[in-house]
Structure formats: structure tokens, C-alpha cells
């Protein structure tokens, strides 16, 4: 694995029951960059993303083979602490899913559970995370309000702040803007670009224009296989594989 690679996936196979969803994927994901995974519905994008912090483990019928190295460590080793892994690899979902707590408590939740800080140190983490998620200016005078009082776009940024609060190295985003309006989407997209200076971001998106706007690298997944990967400009200007061309020009999908 080169120094620039944060995630190294080797011969990844994932089944749900009899269904072979991810088929022998080898892929390297660059550090401090945004990588978009795109492909038609059911191609295995979200399944692959969820493999990066072992979220598939909670599905009883799932079976995973192969290796995923994050920062040089195989996360599928028997001695991997999954809770630590999920702190290291945060996740943001399609729909904002704030906890039924205050804005402050949502962000403080992770650091408290991981016993990272308390008191003023915790306050600092909350502020830093909200600032990094570009939400601080909008909520700093109402941190004790319910998170549900925020707009959808603000709730999604709160979820990003919550992920950042535990000091992750990788942030996974599964269609993070699919439930948001264009203005809120634009803010999240700007945020994704900013986050990539400090974090490795992997985003799954159906929206190809979003992939082309926010990502540095793009992976095209089809029927559980990586068909093409490369710089986003190259993929969207001159894809090398016929299937990629057909997918991104809307001939199928």
C-alpha cells in the first residue's frame, strides 16, 4: 500500500445469504481525498461502504471474505475492536438521524461514550466539531435546543459534526444529500470538499453530477465488481470502459 492510500481492499467478497453482492473487489482509496462510489441500484455500493466499518456484521445472513486494511491495519482481523473501528471510521447516512437529544448532546454523545473528554474539554470538542461541520454559527446560541428543531440540512450537518467529534480518520457518506433540498445539498457538498483536507472521505451517491462535483476519484461499481476507477475528471470526460460510458450518459441504470 502506498503512503497515499488510506484504505486497501483486497479480494473483498460479501454475501447476504446466497446472494453474492460484492465479488472479488480489489481497490485502494486515497487518503485526504474524496472518493465517490457510483453505480446502479443494487450494485453493492452501500454494502461495500458498510464493509469499511464492519456495519454489515450486524446483518446475520452476511458473510465477508477478503481483507480491508485501513491505515495499514486489517479491520477484519479477529482482534479488531469494532467499537474503536467505528470511531476511526465514521458514517453519515441518507437521512439525517439525530438522537432525540439536544444539539450539544448529539455531538457530545460519541466523545462521552468513548470517554474522550468531559467538562470544558468536551465543550471544546463540541464547538470544534460544529465549526468543522459549518454549523456552529447557526446553532451556538441554542445548543440546548432539541436537534429535531433544526432543518433537514442542519440535521445532516449535525450528524457530520457527531461523526467528527470522535476524531475519525475516515468518513463514510451514504447518499448524504438524497433527502435534502438544493441549498442544503450545496452546503453539504462544500463541507465534503473542506473535510477532505483533514479526512479521507468515501461517498456513495446515485447523483452523478454530485460525484463529479465533490470527488477527486470515482469508482464505478456494477453487479458487485469494480468496472472502472480513476480520477473523476478522466472518468467523466473519457471513461475507458463501455459500461461506465453507458451508465454515466444515462443509457442504463
Amino acid at each position: 500500500m502506498s503512503q497515499d492510500d488510506k484504505i486497501d481492499i483486497r479480494q473483498l467478497n460479501i454475501w447476504f445469504g446466497e446472494k453474492h453482492v460484492i465479488r472479488g473487489v480489489d481497490l485502494k482509496i486515497k487518503a485526504n481525498a474524496v472518493t465517490a462510489i457510483m453505480g446502479p441500484s443494487g450494485c453493492g455500493k452501500s454494502t461495500m461502504l458498510r464493509a469499511f466499518n464492519r456495519m454489515n456484521d450486524v446483518i446475520k445472513s452476511s458473510k465477508t471474505t477478503g481483507d480491508i486494511f485501513i491505515g495499514g491495519k486489517n479491520i477484519y482481523d479477529n482482534n479488531t475492536n469494532v467499537y474503536d473501528l467505528r470511531r476511526q471510521v465514521g458514517m453519515v447516512f441518507q437521512k439525517p438521524n439525530p438522537l432525540p437529544k439536544s444539539i450539544y448532546e448529539n455531538v457530545a454523545f460519541g466523545p462521552k461514550i468513548h470517554k474522550m473528554a468531559k467538562g470544558k474539554d468536551l465543550d471544546k470538542i463540541v464547538e470544534k466539531s460544529l465549526r468543522a461541520a459549518a454549523l456552529w454559527d447557526e446553532v451556538n446560541d441554542r445548543l440546548n435546543d432539541s436537534a429535531f428543531d433544526l432543518s433537514g440540512g442542519q440535521q445532516q450537518r449535525l450528524c457530520i459534526a457527531r461523526a467528527l467529534a470522535v476524531d475519525p480518520e475516515v468518513i463514510l457518506m451514504d447518499e448524504p444529500c438524497s433527502a435534502l433540498d438544493p441549498a442544503a445539498t450545496a452546503k453539504i457538498e462544500q463541507l465534503i470538499r473542506i473535510l477532505s483536507t483533514d479526512y479521507t472521505v468515501v461517498i456513495v451517491t446515485h447523483n452523478m453530477q454530485q460525484a463529479s462535483r465533490v470527488s477527486d476519484y470515482t469508482v464505478f461499481l456494477y453487479l458487485g465488481k469494480v468496472i472502472e476507477k480513476g480520477g473523476t475528471k478522466a472518468i467523466f470526460e473519457n471513461p475507458q470502459h463501455e459500461l461506465t460510458e453507458q451508465y454515466i450518459t444515462g443509457e442504463f441504470g
Binding site: F236, E237, P239, E245
Partner: peptide
Amino acid sequence: FQPVASDLR
């Protein structure tokens, strides 16, 4: 239509 690939070229 935000064209890409051959359409964009």
C-alpha cells in the same frame, strides 16, 4: 442535462 463522457466531448 449536465452531459458527461462522449456527450460532453
